[in-house]
Simulated scan of single mutants.
Amino acid sequence: MAPAASAAPEHEPFCVLLVEDQASLRAQLCSELQRAGATEVLQAADADAALQLFKLRRPDLVLLDIRLPGSEDGYWVAQRMREAEPGGWTPIIFLSGLDGDGDLWRGIEAGGDDYLVKPVRPIVLAAKLRAMRRLRDMRRRLVQLTEELHLANQRLNEMVELDPLTGLVNRRGFDRILHSEILAARRDGTPLTLMLCDLDHFKRYNDTLGHVQGDECLKAVSRVLREVCMRPRDTAARYGGEEFALILPGTPRSGAMTFARALGKLLASRALTHPDSPGGHMLTLSGGITTCVPDATTSAESMLIRADEALYAAKAQGRNRFFSFEMQMDTIEQRHL
């Protein structure tokens, strides 16, 4: 008998399920498997015990005798094992005294991966064990690499959709999220609010204090927007320059106006100075609001046009306010109701 102790690497456990009804042969094979590098050998003498051990322990390899006591043979056991591991794969090697092509084909059809004719030579068994162990390690590594690639792609997508200055969602991410929320609101029959915001007289801010200080101001405003977006699906985005956008799923018209007033108060509480503002010495924000329950005609473009028109109306009425066409009022008028 050729020595097989070094045939399989020992760096990781390797569990084998041996299904054989003859006790003497089962003991012999168990001993040879252990010499070949199997760290654990589970033993079963019939179909029911084999399936129970397979489901309970999920071995790395199954050595399965075709002829088993009772009404079910090894082919049936292999089929049940395959059904018990959807999406997984455990190699199954059949053991049989038969060596015809038909027997081999039937074994493959039943879910087997290889076929050994009894009596099995130890060197052949050791070689099969080593090959299956190598395949197991390669498959695990492939699964690990796939998971790592998925996580890397997630991080890359997050980086691609983030504005580097403010840390808010950028225009690309905004377009994707708005489209997705329109579809969700249309499906659920729920309201969706979009706000476009613009810092009042921000060009004069940059001209007076410089672009470096202007960038710091944009960061401060972004922190306010993140703070006011308290629900998980509320999204604050940098739309471009000193323009920002807010996507508020499940927010009706009255709720949108209340949200806008809260945003204005929060910004005012931060007391960000604007030394060249015609309306005073504090930085203010103007915004346009549109709210709808999306239907088949609703698109991201139509909502953006509506919000932009409302933003223009807010500026025309004196800035430092939000205007809603649906409510036909701005936040200043609503405050006095």
Rank of each mutant, 00 (worst) to 15 (best):
A2D: 09
P3H: 13
A4F: 00
A5Y: 07
P9Q: 02
P9C: 02
E12H: 02
F14C: 08
V16H: 09
V16W: 07
L18D: 08
V19R: 06
Q22S: 12
A23N: 03
S24N: 08
L25F: 06
L25W: 12
A27Q: 15
L33M: 09
L33T: 14
G37C: 01
G37K: 01
E40S: 14
A44K: 02
F54H: 06
P59F: 06
D60R: 00
D65V: 05
I66E: 03
G70I: 06
L98C: 04
L104Q: 14
R106P: 09
Y115S: 08
V117F: 10
K118G: 07
V120Y: 02
I123G: 00
L145R: 15
L149K: 11
H150Q: 15
A152Q: 14
Q154S: 05
R155H: 12
L165M: 13
T166I: 05
I177E: 13
R187N: 12
L194P: 13
L196P: 03
R204M: 14
D207R: 13
L209T: 01
G214Q: 09
P232Q: 04
R233I: 01
D234S: 11
A236N: 02
G240S: 10
G241R: 08
F244T: 06
A245S: 13
I247W: 07
A256W: 10
T258M: 06
F259I: 11
F259V: 08
R261V: 02
A268H: 11
G280Q: 09
T284D: 03
I289W: 04
I289A: 03
D295Y: 09
S302E: 03
M303C: 07
A310H: 10
A310R: 05
Y312R: 12
K315N: 10
F323I: 04
F323W: 15
F323E: 05
E326C: 02
M329C: 15
T331C: 04
R335L: 14
